[in-house]
Simulated scan of single mutants.
Amino acid sequence: MIMKWTSLTVAMLIAISSYGLALESRFPTSWANTKKVLAAEVYTDRLRTFYCGCQYTVDPSSRGETLKPESCQLPSNLKWASKHNDVEWEHIVPAQLMPASTFTCWQKPNSFPRCVSKSGEVSSGRACCEKVDSAARNMIFDMFNAVPAAAQLNQYRSNDPYGEISDSQPHEGFGPQCEAQDLNSPGKLFEPPDCKKGDVARVWFYMRDTHKVVIPNEMSAMFLRWSNSDPVSPSEQLYAERISKIQGTVNSYVIGKEASAQGSCSWER
């Protein structure tokens, strides 16, 4: 049987082939590389932190970031005062909550020769997985999951889960411009501003689909509410498109959706 190749068939094959190439993943290979690419190629328009919109500057020689805490009225009496002018790149989904934390390289790093130095020092579980397991590296260094944050807020949040904090619960606030809240006792929760709740939710959904991150049912329902109430903003979509072109993966909860200024924070408008 002789197959007749029509122009439509050829065009479809070319389209499929091009789509496959476009989705070839190219994850960063180190945390340092992740931060460098994000600073140099993704977050280049408005140099503002994720939660509070604090302005920061970038040193062209080192790509290091310096925060301007007065730009977002960040209180000076917060803990970790030595970090008041620092920016840190934060995992929205902490590495400890990724499937990598269950891998053998994380649980038993001493069983991997590359994770044991000549002097017998054993790498941490995370560091070991970053050395020896490509799946772990991909989820830990995924650029969709990293955002610039004021270092003090990053320290407050640490690995705390996201949640909703009531006014009656004693919590830490971060000044009149930043609506983020941190609860340390009882329990531990971090609540992002309303204008970033949808962004957070859509990263978690992406990480679930891409790296099999587990989202408990109650948290999944909360994230769905957040995503519905805080739609995709133009800047969120722009950053996602840039990451997709560099990394080769797609956050379908953001890319291709109709962007709305309603989802923007005040400092993004």
Rank of each mutant, 00 (worst) to 15 (best):
M3W: 03
W5A: 13
A11K: 07
M12G: 05
L21R: 14
L23G: 11
E24P: 00
T29L: 11
E41D: 13
R48G: 06
Y51I: 08
C52T: 05
C54M: 06
Q55H: 14
Q55E: 15
T66V: 13
T66Q: 15
L67F: 11
K68D: 15
E70L: 11
S71F: 01
L74T: 10
P75T: 04
L78F: 02
W80E: 12
K83S: 13
N85W: 06
E88Q: 15
E90V: 07
H91T: 03
I92M: 15
L97S: 13
M98G: 08
C105G: 01
W106G: 04
P113K: 00
P113E: 01
P113Q: 01
V116K: 04
S117W: 04
S117C: 04
S119K: 15
S123L: 14
E130P: 01
V132L: 01
A135N: 14
I140L: 14
F141D: 11
M143Q: 09
M143R: 10
N145F: 02
N145K: 03
A146D: 00
A151R: 01
N154L: 00
Q169D: 09
E179D: 14
G187Y: 00
F190K: 10
E191I: 10
P192Q: 10
K197H: 10
A201G: 07
W204Q: 11
K212N: 13
I215Q: 14
N217T: 13
A221K: 14
F223V: 08
L224H: 11
L224G: 10
R225P: 02
W226K: 07
S227R: 01
S229H: 14
E236N: 05
L238I: 03
K245F: 03
I246N: 05
Q247V: 02
T249C: 07
V250Q: 12
E258D: 11
A259L: 01
Q262R: 15
S264C: 02
S266D: 10
E268N: 04
